[in-house]
Design a protein around this nucleic acid. Structure first.
Lengths: 344, 344
DNA sequence: GACCGCTGTGGGAGCGCTCCCATTTGCGAT
DNA sequence: ATCGCAAATGGGAGCGCTCCCACAGCGGTC
């Protein structure tokens, strides 16, 4: 088979071919393909038949070139997440986003940004406007990405706001409320020496969880004790280390509120290692109510945030923002809820 | 600001603009951008400066229109996976693929196919050749997607072959070997009534795990007892149900080999519910050595398959296949390894 | 000094689509 | 039958790039 023949056989039909076959002009075919109402029933039928016969599929590149839309959005995870699987939060966001996008013509690009090099690559990519919009999760206070998105006037939705004054669209959970509920629960069980392993405080969500912890203690007229606060980064490792630290500093502590389930899982390990029984000696509460909460021993009491729904909602907001760029902004805070299991 | 002005200010520089600024022709700029060696040092320098000054970024749509390459590959997960987070296998594949792709100009499209409608959408998408290649995981025997890929002559790599006669490129784990190792381990611990909760047998990997289980029993001259085999689908739920079934049918069983860690986690629940101690009464082995294996009580002995590396390797193979379409095919089987923890 | 190859270079053609304007068509009103 | 208006239609222009061909310029050779 010659090269020419190969190309022939592989050649996909074009708009023009469909037009010829249907006996109409290119414009009419384009209108049919794009669902314009300004087409007569007869013409539409002829075009649709020609499309079916030829197996015509529009060439997206050509379309993009003219419309400068790409029909794709990026989900950016700018975390040096070693393994996606150890952070169920991200997986759930992905699941939700993907589910919502399935009903549209938008494709989902997954971009994990692990280092500076990948960040630059992403910057180039966004500058080239190779996506119609961006979903950005796990945003740290000093992350330059949101600024870039504003500058490029690229539709964007954050998963977790940077601060209460956030200007971009976002979907956020009521972290403070959840933390308060967790600590109130511990108080109601008679615990009085309640520690916490906090998350990275340059993330609004983590800061709010710590704030909620303090609020609940204040309500109960308990003094705030710095010694009962360990700092971590949501990981299991941080939970182990943080818990060890707390036990060393405040051996009498009888409960701990952890900024994430993973952190709580780490804390459980440290407690076991120290010979403390959970919940008898030390009660533990996690945050996220992710899949790990059900598999720890004992199963974790945890603050549920509707992660998958947050992903869906983020996608919904982005779709609207892509539809009317610059006009649509929405900020949503979703409630959290305490799920009581055996650890507290 | 008028509409015209807006467009003006938003207008990105084109190749032509760069050429004008650098005082060269379009061809030369194109050659510089694409790294052709046929450019004089002087011209190259001028062009590079102009690019920097103008902040030029190539328009991918225009490029695609000519080259009919998209610089994107799709990772297709054709599973009615309710939640990605409950299936660490997929997350690890994603992590590996993404890591490998980061070193290239290829973007990663994530496509979860949950139902018939989404499947059709994907078919249209692939037919339109909107990606340069496809990574396909979790393939069932009767999945029509591989055929489609062959027909479209779209570069593709499978995560897990369909059969030993697979024609497409794939990265596969030595499932039978892993299963044999697991059962031999149980035998060496003196267990003799060893059951299994198998995976979906229309998947080669699951079938091989069951085959490995049978081989190991045969080696030990133990009869094969249908009553010791329950059938599932890799899920936790299947593990629970399967284990209950096995306990009802063969109350004397003293070990169980599960086709996945999730299934093993389910089995542990059923065993606890039945008052059996693990591993004293019943030993349990899982498969995958995923993140859940470390969090169960007791921690699971499991057959490790290098999931993340499999993702990396899949991406590597695909990259090569995209580079020389139709010429490059490779089939890889990676070894598995038993990781002994407390459950067996 | 005429000639031959190179290596570099410029720019026309064309990828397949949408946009938009000019034109045709259909139909009710007069 | 004639006119007018809206609805429908055809097709030119142009999106920004790569491909490729024709040609310029520059030694080296005889």
């Amino acid at each position: 088979m010659s090269r020419a023949e190969q190309q022939q056989s592989a050649a996909r039909p074009t708009l023009e071919a469909v037009a010829a076959r249907a006996g109409v002009g290119r414009g009419t075919v384009s209108r049919v393909v794009n669902g314009s109402p300004k087409v007569s029933a007869k013409a539409r039928a002829a075009v649709e038949q020609a499309i079916a016969e030829l197996g015509y599929v529009p060439n997206q590149a050509a379309r993009s070139l003219v419309t400068s839309r790409t029909d794709a959005v990026a989900l950016v995870i700018p975390e040096s997440v070693a393994k996606l699987s150890s952070e169920p939060y991200f997986s759930d966001i992905i699941t939700g986003v993907s589910a919502e996008l399935a009903g549209t013509e938008l494709q989902l690009l997954l971009v994990l940004v692990r280092d500076e090099h990948e960040r630059e690559r992403l910057t180039r990519y966004l500058t080239a406007r190779r996506v119609d919009g961006v979903l950005l999760v796990s945003v740290h206070q000093d992350d330059p990405l949101p600024e870039l998105l504003e500058r490029l006037e690229l539709p964007a939705v954050l998963g977790g706001r940077r601060s209460a004054q956030e200007t971009l669209s976002y979907v956020h959970a009521d972290n403070a409320g959840g933390a308060r509920a967790a600590v109130r629960h511990l108080l109601s069980r008679g615990r009085t020496a309640i520690g916490t392993v906090a998350g990275p405080l340059d993330m609004e969500g983590a800061a709010e969880r710590l704030a909620g912890y303090r609020q609940a203690l204040a309500e109960a007229r308990l003094p705030y004790d710095e010694g009962l606060v360990a700092h971590g980064d949501f990981t299991e490792h941080a939970g182990r280390e943080g818990m060890r630290e707390l036990l060393a500093r405040r051996p009498g502590l009888d409960a701990v509120f952890c900024a994430s389930d993973l952190t709580a899982a780490g804390a459980l390990q440290a407690l076991r290692e120290a010979g403390r029984r959970v919940p008898q000696d030390v009660a533990v509460v996690g945050f996220d109510d992710s899949v790990v909460a059900r598999h720890t021993e004992p199963p974790l009491t945890s603050v549920r945030q509707p992660t998958e729904e947050m992903g869906r909602l983020m996608a919904q907001l982005l779709i609207k923002e892509v539809a009317e760029p610059g006009r649509f902004r929405r900020q949503v805070v979703l409630p959290t809820e305490l799920v009581v299991r055996e650890s507290a």
